[in-house]
């Protein structure tokens, strides 16, 4: 292994790499935000919605959760780029968002249902309306409960973003392949890519645990 030559090549490739990493982070980040919002809607529908609403959302959820994320990505890409002329980025973002929302929705639903019934009753007993009860009593507790799973979902999303390379989104994996095509050092550049993914996921987990500690209730 020729280190000096490799570092020279690495330096040449730095812009491409930074762009690739940026794309990975950006698309994962947007997908997490949108997916979480959508996921909250899913959870609310499943816990508080009417029978029809629950049925429809449940079908959607089971469908998405039973489908591999790669299939979601390919399906969104082929369907949406053909019909509505979406770019790979947009199609991939939609796929990741939907994927994220299914996980967030299921986790939040579980967290809400795990709350003791007495909490809702105590809120009712002091005269809180349903909305007030949800915002001030139930949600803070459910969100704390769902936090570890949410952190996990965020890491999964970053890992799933690698599959977007297949539909042509220039994130880190595709960037790495492009760089190797010009500067054939597969082992070294893949190592760099692996290191980056490791650092991102590891940091997410670390950050997550720090947040968990911060919002944990004293006991």
């Amino acid at each position: 292994m020729d280190f000096t030559r490799f570092f020279a090549d690495l330096w040449i490739a730095r812009f491409a790499l930074v762009e690739g990493i940026g794309m990975t982070l950006v698309i994962s980040g947007i997908a997490i935000v949108l997916g979480t919002l959508l996921g909250i809607g899913v959870a609310l529908s499943l816990v508080y919605g009417g029978r029809l609403q629950r049925f429809v959302v449940r079908i959607f959820l089971e469908y998405v959760r039973g489908t591999p994320v790669f299939v979601l990505i390919l399906a969104c890409y082929y369907l949406l780029s053909g019909v509505i002329q979406l770019t790979p980025f947009q199609a991939g973002l939609i796929a990741l968002t939907v994927f994220c929302s299914s996980h967030v929705g299921e986790n939040l639903r579980g967290a809400l249902l795990a709350l003791p019934k007495g909490q809702t009753e105590a809120g009712k007993a002091i005269g809180l309306t349903f909305c007030q009860n949800f915002i001030y009593v139930l949600a803070p507790q459910a969100l704390r409960q769902a936090l570890p799973a949410w952190i996990n979902t965020a890491a999964e999303l970053v890992k799933a973003s690698t599959l977007l390379a297949v539909i042509g989104v220039v994130e880190l994996m595709l960037t790495t392949r492009q760089i190797i095509a010009i500067k054939p050092r597969p082992l070294e550049f893949y190592f760099v890519a692996g290191l980056v993914y490791f650092l991102i996921c590891f940091s997410i987990e670390r950050l997550g645990r720090a947040v968990e500690r911060r919002v944990a209730l004293p006991s």
């Binding site: 890992k159 690698t162 599959l163 994996m173 082992l187 893949y190 890519a193 993914y197 996921c201 590891f202």
Partner: peptide, 23 residues
């Protein structure tokens, strides 16, 4: 455990299929 859990399967697969055989 820590290494593998923080790496994407797609990445590992490409390494196993493209990089390793070559090396």
């Amino acid at each position: 455990v820590t290494t593998i859990r923080n790496l994407p399967i797609y990445f590992l697969m490409l390494v196993a299929f493209f990089v390793l055989p070559q090396q």
